[in-house]
């Protein structure tokens, strides 16, 4: 629940913004990060940006998410075996 996702601000007006992470876009608020502007990357938690992060940090997280998604997809295809042995 306390996970925040990095995303780039692609539109902003006042404290309402649209953020983009790996092609997914959604509405967010920048109320908690007034210093964030267009083009900045922010960590977003429950619809709110909580801090700015740099490009490199964001890229590492995006790559990690991609890898997790890929592994989970493979697991699903392998028959979705879950649970204790």
């Amino acid at each position: 629940m306390c996970l925040a996702i990095p995303a780039r601000i692609v539109e902003i007006e006042g404290d309402s913004a649209v953020a983009d992470a790996m092609g997914t876009r959604w509405k967010i608020r920048t109320t908690l990060t007034p210093e964030a502007g267009l083009g900045d990357i922010v960590l977003i938690h429950a619809g709110y940006a909580i801090t700015k992060v740099d490009e490199e940090e964001a890229r590492k997280t995006w790559e990690l998410f991609e890898e997790i998604a890929r592994i989970e997809e493979q697991e699903k295809q392998a028959g979705g075996q879950e649970g204790p042995a």
Binding site: M1, C2, A4, R29, T31, L32, H45, A46, G47, Y48, I50
Partner: peptide, 11 residues
């Protein structure tokens, strides 16, 4: 939620 979540509730 913990402190990550609380500020949004305050807003």
């Amino acid at each position: 939620g913990f402190e990550t979540t609380t500020p949004a509730t305050a807003v």
